[in-house]
C-alpha cells in the first residue's frame, strides 16, 4: 500500500515514567524529531526520543541549558539516516503550503500560549518547546500523555491552526539586540525533506474563475534571505513570502473563487502571474493564512 501524508507515526511521550528515558523532560525536541524520522521514512526508521538525543552532540544535557536546538536534532537525525531541513525563520504561509505538499514539521513553540488551553501538557510550563506538526494538523505534543487530570492526552485530534501559529510566533529567540519572540506569522523548526505523497493537492483556480475583490497597487521588493517583502512606499509590517532577494512584485490581489476559497495573487512587473504564488484559504483552511509560497521564476 502506498504511503501517503496521512501516515501517522507512533506518539512518543517524553515523560520519563512512560518513555523510560531519564532525560525525557529535557528532550522534547528529540521526541518530536523521532516522530519526524518515522513520518519521513513511513515508519522504516523509527528511533526513540532517547536514541535521537544520544545521537546529538549533547547526549547528557548541559545542566545550565538542558534542551536542544533544531540543528542539534537535525544533525542527529542525519546520523540516523533521516535528512530534514532546519530553518531559523520561515513565514507561516510557507509552512502551510509545504504541509499541503506533504512535508511534516517539527515546530518550535512557546508553551505559554498552549499552557492555558485544553491542549496543555503541563500547566506549569511556559518555556520553549517543540512539537510534531504533520500535514494533517494532528499535532503531537510530547507532553500530552494524559498522565493525570488536567493533562491533555494525544488522540489524533487536529489542533487549531491559529493556536499553532500563535504558539510558534511566541517562540523565544535571541537577536543581537537581545531575546524576543520570533514574531507572529513566523516560526523556527525543521521539516521533513523527504515525505510521503500528499493526500490531496489544492489546485489554484483558473484565472477566469477568479473574482478579484481588492487590488493593492504598490511595488514590493524582497530583501534579505528569508523573503521579507518591503514595499514602496514603506509599509509598517513586512510581508513574508519566500523569494530571492531583489524579486519584484507590482500588485497583490485578493480573490475568491466560486467554491469560496480565497486567494492572493502576486503579479510580476511584466504582468505575468506564477501559479505557485497563488495561496488559499477557505473551506478547511482558516482565514488569515493566505500567504503565498513558492519561488518567483520569471522576474525580468
Amino acid at each position: 500500500m502506498a504511503c501517503t501524508s496521512a501516515f501517522t507515526p507512533a506518539f512518543l511521550a517524553q515523560n520519563p515514567a512512560i518513555s523510560g528515558y531519564v532525560y525525557g523532560w529535557s528532550s522534547c525536541a528529540a521526541f518530536a524529531g523521532a516522530e519526524a524520522a518515522s513520518y519521513s521514512s513511513c515508519g522504516a526508521i523509527h528511533p526513540s526520543g532517547e536514541q535521537v538525543r544520544n545521537a546529538t552532540n549533547e547526549p547528557i544535557p548541559n545542566p545550565l541549558s538542558p534542551g536542544l536546538t533544531i540543528t542539534q536534532v537535525t544533525d542527529a537525525l542525519a546520523k540516523l539516516g533521516v535528512t530534514v531541513t532546519p530553518f531559523n525563520r520561515m513565514g507561516w504561509s510557507e509552512i502551510t503550503a509545504m504541509r499541503g505538499a506533504g512535508h511534516g514539521f517539527s515546530l518550535c513553540v512557546r508553551y505559554s500560549v498552549i499552557r492555558p488551553t485544553r491542549f496543555t501538557g503541563d500547566p506549569n510550563f511556559y518555556g520553549n518547546h517543540q512539537l510534531w506538526y504533520p500535514p494533517s494538523g494532528a499535532t503531537m505534543d510530547p507532553l500530552a500523555d494524559g498522565r493525570r487530570a488536567g493533562i491533555y492526552r494525544y488522540h489524533g485530534e487536529v489542533y487549531p491552526d491559529d493556536l499553532m501559529e500563535r504558539a510558534a510566533g511566541a517562540f523565544l529567540v535571541n537577536y543581537s539586540s537581545g531575546p524576543g519572540p520570533i514574531g507572529f506569522g513566523y516560526a523556527q523548526g525543521f521539516y521533513t525533506t523527504s515525505h510521503p505523497a500528499p493526500v490531496a493537492v489544492i489546485e489554484p483556480p483558473q484565472e477566469s474563475a477568479v473574482r478579484v475583490t481588492d487590488t493593492v497597487h504598490q511595488q514590493w521588493t524582497a530583501v534579505g534571505t528569508n523573503g521579507v517583502l518591503r514595499t514602496t512606499p514603506a509599509r509598517s509590517a513586512p510581508i513574508a513570502y519566500r523569494m530571492p532577494a531583489g524579486s519584484v512584485v507590482t500588485s497583490i490581489a485578493e480573490a475568491e473563487d466560486p467554491a469560496g476559497n480565497h486567494w492572493r495573487l502576486l503579479t510580476h512587473p511584466d504582468g505575468t502571474r506564477n501559479p505557485a504564488w497563488l495561496l488559499h484559504y477557505g473551506p478547511g483552511i482558516p482565514r488569515g493564512h493566505d500567504w503565498a509560497a513558492g519561488p518567483i521564476t520569471s522576474v525580468p
Binding site: 525563520r89 508553551y111 503541563d122 510550563f125 534571505t225 510581508i239 500567504w291
Partner: peptide
C-alpha cells in the same frame, strides 16, 4: 480581512534551545 505577520528584525535569529517542562512532576522510576 487577513492576519499579517508581525514586523520583525531582518536579522535571522539563531536556533534557540528548548526549555524543560515537568519540573513539578513526581520523580519517576528509571
Amino acid at each position: 480581512m487577513t492576519t499579517e505577520p508581525d514586523d520583525v528584525p531582518e536579522e535571522e535569529p539563531e536556533p534557540a534551545k528548548t526549555d524543560v517542562p515537568g519540573q513539578n512532576e513526581p520523580e519517576e522510576a528509571e
